[in-house]
């Protein structure tokens, strides 16, 4: 499976919280390690854009939503459970690096 299109993600946060900051940091790692840098992230503050949170039906934050490619999915939390995420992204089809067994 060779995915060349750019992945788009949206991260919902409420204001400036430690969990929100951790989610950003952890996404950077995911972006580099799992998604080979091939992903864009938009950060949305629910306090500033509540309508967008309404559209995406966000209840818990931080919440990461994959916009492209389909299927869309949601991950809530500060993305700190990296082992769990790694296997999840492998199944969800976001990993275009062939060797994933080596860390």
């Amino acid at each position: 499976m060779n995915d060349t299109s750019v992945h788009q993600y949206r991260l919902y946060v409420v204001g400036d919280t430690p969990a929100g900051q951790r989610a950003r940091d952890n996404f950077k790692i995911i972006q580099e390690v799992i998604l080979s840098g091939n992903a864009e992230l938009e950060v949305v503050d629910v306090l500033k854009s509540p309508e967008r949170a309404e559209m995406d039906r966000i209840v818990a934050v931080p919440a990461l939503v994959r916009i492209e490619p389909p299927p869309s999915f949601k991950i809530i939390g500060d993305l700190s459970d990296s082992a769990h995420l790694r296997s999840f992204f492998a199944v969800a089809g976001g990993n275009d690096s062939p060797q994933e067994d080596g860390t």
Binding site: V14, A19, V46, V59, I75, I76, G77, D78
Partner: peptide, 24 residues
């Protein structure tokens, strides 16, 4: 609207709170 939709189940990874709900 915070009703569950099919395919809407979120994966939990790490700490979170319901701040978005409150803000909405």
């Amino acid at each position: 609207d915070a009703s569950p939709q099919p395919g809407d189940e979120a994966i939990e990874s790490g700490e979170f709170d319901l701040g978005a709900l409150l803000a909405r």
